[in-house]
Design a protein around this nucleic acid. Structure first.
Length: 565
RNA sequence: UGACCGAUGGUGUAAUUGGCAACACGUCUGAUUUUGGUUCAGAAGAGUUCUGGUUCGAUUCCAGAUCGGUCAACCA
């Protein structure tokens, strides 16, 4: 007799990505004594976008997975572009996403003194020198990938002289651009970054943290690896474009003989129908194509938040898209799927009519308002029920009535019967039109026995439509957002055009809707589903006189898809 | 052009590290449904850029080619 093995299959996790594989290998060999310590290193010169969210989730998520820590480190080595406004927004965004760096909030500028001392050390070792060349000269002498560069005349000046000049640079004895400190590596290297890269430049600029203490500032390449080293970072995760910088990153650490973190590069996120570069996002804001960094059409974290995205949905998105090294374009439909999935579970259902037409129930008493029970979320009974006022005159969507319906249309039409959600079955008797032939009123009779939405005779109706009492409903401004661009890749512009030529003219539609009275008490922390329409959130522009809702995303709609076929 | 990196359905990511390609999104059917939502059942869609090599066997290893990306700021 065959004995079935009850031995469970090795519960090996399938499909872990290459970065986690590297970490698991390192943990096996003990390369970092089983430590995992990452960092998220934004430059405070702009707002974070969903691409950064991917990186944040990767860094914080990786550390959490392997029992390690993540530092937040502001890469503030260029005082002319950076500002505390950005520091604050970056902190908010990371916290909102759900991650914590505890008290490990660092700044590259915290290490300026140490970086300076190390630079002096490199000069002493003959590995760095003060260069007199201007930016133009330097560029002209750098050569190109196939032509080696020319060495600077300053390259062979004495250690003593470089030391004195570097001190003079720090003391402010030179004008901006007059001198630089350069690493002495190899002007003939096939890697352009190794051709005596600049380590320090002179900038007589006020720094948002160090004030006027310094007039020389380290370059990214000289600062980043050393900051990682000081913080004992194990895996320094960055995007692909820094791959060619890695030899330089390793060079500094090696020449200085200090602790060596490992830089690992992954492919940045690209999303269809949007742009991701800081420069372009800034342009959209500056030139008023959108209303600020947190415009709900922006791919910024604050924009997505205002749009109604939840941290959970973004984290799940980051998880689902994976991490690899090949260039990728993620379909926005996947992002939308992630919010829908999350909002379906948590959104409070309400009824709102966005494009109203009046429906009059002829056999219903004039002055009666009755309260009907409605379920707040069929996915979560714990969210309870509420009452909705019903009256003789109500609003329904224009789309939910058709005078000459097609075969598969099962909403309201002359002679047809539908269910008013949570209310009654109604049958259309006739319509009233104005002189232009526009329908102004739809008349119905209701079946009193169907109160609540079911008929005792067991009769079925195909369609259920939503409605709002004409007398008890509230007006609200509803902002219907759609994708910002009409082109899948706006960066891929035709001759003579640029990404702005592909802006979607209909990315925002403002309408006045009528919503059920419950929403008078709406609040910004709540997520709503306007039944049969989409997910919406309460916008901060709301006031006591005006309710404002943003459409996060529509519901999936297999009807219009079929109807427009 | 030189260095570095990459290439798997429409999109993204996998494939027990050499054992006859899986998952998700999207698309399409159908069922259920007081949301044409959700849920459920199912289908179509790639033979892994190409050419050789190693091997009983290659998406995986090797060589070459092709295509794509990144890099020539005193930006990060």
């Amino acid at each position: 007799m065959e004995i079935k093995s009850t031995e469970p299959k090795e519960p090996r996790e399938k499909g872990i990505h290459f970065i986690h594989q590297i970490i698991e290998d390192d943990n096996k060999t003990g390369k970092f004594e089983q430590r995992v310590h990452t960092r998220f290193p934004p430059e405070p010169n702009g707002y974070l976008h969903i691409g950064h969210a991917k990186s944040i989730c990767l860094n914080f998520g990786t550390a959490a997975k392997y029992g390690g820590l993540t530092n937040l480190r502001f890469d503030d080595t260029n005082p002319t572009t950076e500002d505390t406004e950005y520091v604050d927004s970056i902190r908010d965004d990371i916290r909102w996403l759900g991650f914590s760096w505890d008290d490990r909030e660092y700044y590259a500028s915290d290490y300026f003194e140490q970086l300076y001392a190390w630079a002096v050390e490199l000069i002493r070792k003959g590995k760095a020198y003060v260069c007199d060349m201007s930016a133009e000269e330097m560029s002209a002498n750098r050569g190109n990938p196939s032509v080696p560069g020319k060495e600077s005349p300053s390259r062979n000046r004495s250690v003593k002289e470089s030391l004195d000049l570097f001190e003079g640079m720090r003391k402010g004895e030179f004008k901006e651009g007059e001198k630089t400190l350069r690493a002495k590596i190899d002007m003939a290297s096939p890697n352009m970054h190794m051709r005596d890269p600049v380590m320090y430049r002179i900038m007589h600029a006020h720094h948002h943290r160090t004030g006027d203490k310094w007039c020389i500032y380290p370059m990214y390449d000289y600062a980043h690896g050393q900051c990682d080293s000081i913080e004992k970072i194990t895996h320094s995760i960055c995007t692909l474009e820094f791959e060619v910088h890695r030899p330089l990153y390793d060079w500094f650490v090696k020449e200085l003989g200090i602790y060596a973190p490992q830089q690992i590069e992954f492919a940045r996120l690209n999303l269809s129908y949007t742009v991701m570069s800081k420069r372009k996002l800034l342009q959209l804001v500056k030139e008023n194509y959108v209303n600020g960094w947190d415009d709900p059409r922006m791919p910024t974290i604050c924009g997505l938040r205002r749009r109604g995205y939840t941290p959970e949905s973004l984290r799940n998105f980051a998880e689902i898209i994976g991490v690899a090294k090949r260039d990728n374009v993620i379909d926005v439909a996947l992002l939308e799927h992630c919010v829908r999935e999350d909002l379906n579970k948590r959104a409070f259902r309400v009824m709102a009519v966005l494009n109203p037409v009046k429906l009059v129930i002829d056999n219903y008493p004039e002055d009666t308002v009755e309260m009907l029970d409605a379920i707040n979320n069929p996915e979560d009974p714990e969210m309870g029920t509420r009452q909705i006022p019903f009256s003789k005159e109500i609003y329904i969507e224009k789309d939910d009535f058709m005078e000459n319906p097609s075969k598969k249309y099962y909403r309201l039409s002359p002679g047809a019967e539908v269910r008013l959600r949570y209310a009654y079955f109604v049958k259309c008797t006739h319509v009233v039109k104005d002189s232009d032939g526009e329908i102004t009123e739809i008349h119905c009779t209701l079946d009193p026995a169907s109160r609540g939405g079911n008929s005792p005779d067991g009769r079925k109706v195909q369609g259920t439509i939503h409605w709002v009492s004409a007398t008890k409903g509230e007006q609200a401004e509803v902002r219907l957002y759609d994708r910002l661009f009409v082109k899948e890749n706006p960066d891929d512009a035709e001759e003579g055009k640029d990404f702005k030529d592909y802006l979607n003219a209909d990315s925002l539609k403002l309408i006045t809707a009528v919503v059920e009275p419950y929403l008078k008490d709406a609040d910004t922390n709540m997520k709503y589903q306007f039944e049969r329409i989409g997910y919406f959130c309460f916008d901060k522009d709301s006031s006591t006189e005006k309710l404002v809702f943003n459409r996060t995303v529509t519901l999936k709609d297999s009807w219009t898809k079929q109807a427009t076929k």
